[in-house]
Each structure stands twice: as structure tokens, then as C-alpha cells.
């Protein structure tokens, strides 16, 4: 049996006001122009907000969750008459999925690259050559591991 957990929404990160989900009245204005909803039958921002509100979110923050298909296009943010901000609810759910080790490999790898190198990718030899050919100034890349210091243990 599925158990509801009304306290679940309190766990959602509030930096970007994902807490506004309480105002959602399930009107579906967020669904119509959602590029992910148009392409994935199980991706529906209205339902995702409802699941977060009811605390029925094990699947959403579990492995291979559909939340990672969100295009972060912010159409739902603009269309929502209640300022419930579905996209921020989805980001907060992604954070919970990441914390429990359920983020997709690509996401973890990209974050690791930023933490280790300071950038999402490194400077390849061919790109260094291209920069020289174009005559753009030499690039000064961040010191390795620099961000780990500020982020603390």
C-alpha cells in the first residue's frame, strides 16, 4: 500500500522557493507546453507537484526517475497562475535523489568534474591548438580541487 507523508514537502530545498508548491490547485497549466511531458508519458509536472505534496515520492527520488528528463525550460514557472514553481520542486526532488545516491551517472560525473577541475570539461590538446590558431588569449584554468576547499568537508 502506498503511504502518504504530509511532512515530505518540508524536506524540499527552499532556496528557490520550492516551498510554494502548497499553492498548487492542480489546474494543469504547467503541462500543456512542457517539452518533457510531450515526450514522456510518465512525466507530468502537475502530478510531480501532487506527489511531492502528498509525500508519495519514493519513485520520483529513486533510481532512473523521470525527473531527470526535465528540460529546465521554466515554461511551467511562467504559466503557473499560483506561482507554485513546478520546475523548482523538480530541482529540489533531484537534490534529494542525488543525496540518496540515485542520480544518473552523467549528473554525478559532471558535478565531479566541476569540483575537481573547476570546469565541466578540461582543455584538450586540439582545443588548445584551436585557441592558438584563433589567436585568443591563453586560458587560465582554476587550480585543481580548489572548489572542494570552499565547499568544506
Amino acid at each position: 500500500m502506498v503511504r502518504a507523508n504530509p511532512d515530505f514537502a518540508k524536506q524540499l530545498n527552499r532556496i528557490e522557493k520550492a516551498g510554494n508548491l502548497n499553492y498548487c490547485y492542480q489546474c494543469s497549466a504547467c503541462v500543456q507546453e512542457c517539452p518533457a511531458a510531450l515526450r514522456f508519458s510518465d512525466f507530468n509536472p502537475r502530478e510531480i507537484v501532487l506527489c511531492a505534496l502528498l509525500g508519495v515520492a519514493d519513485e520520483l527520488i529513486g533510481e532512473n526517475s523521470v525527473i531527470w528528463q526535465c528540460a529546465t525550460c521554466y515554461n511551467c514557472y511562467e504559466r503557473c497562475p499560483q506561482k507554485a514553481r513546478p520546475v523548482e520542486v523538480i530541482t529540489a526532488l533531484k537534490n534529494l535523489a542525488f543525496e540518496t545516491g540515485n542520480a544518473p551517472e552523467q549528473i554525478t560525473a559532471l558535478r565531479e568534474s566541476v569540483l575537481n577541475h573547476g570546469t565541466i570539461t578540461t582543455l584538450s590538446d586540439s582545443m588548445k591548438k584551436r585557441r592558438d590558431e584563433l589567436g585568443v588569449p591563453a586560458i587560465s584554468l582554476p587550480e585543481a580541487g580548489l572548489l572542494k576547499k570552499i565547499l568544506g568537508g
Partner: peptide
């Protein structure tokens, strides 16, 4: 100027952790 890192990227890094994203 020197010292900038990735902004960081606003869907994957932000999806991993908002606090970390905001700190960077």
C-alpha cells in the same frame, strides 16, 4: 581576471545540490 570556475551549470550541478550550486 583569474579565479573564476564553472558558473556552475544550472541544471545538472544545480540538480545535484542547490547549496553547492549557490556557493560556487
Amino acid at each position: 581576471i583569474e579565479g573564476f570556475t564553472c558558473c556552475p551549470e544550472p541544471w545538472n550541478v544545480k540538480g545535484a545540490g542547490l547549496t553547492e550550486w549557490l556557493t560556487i
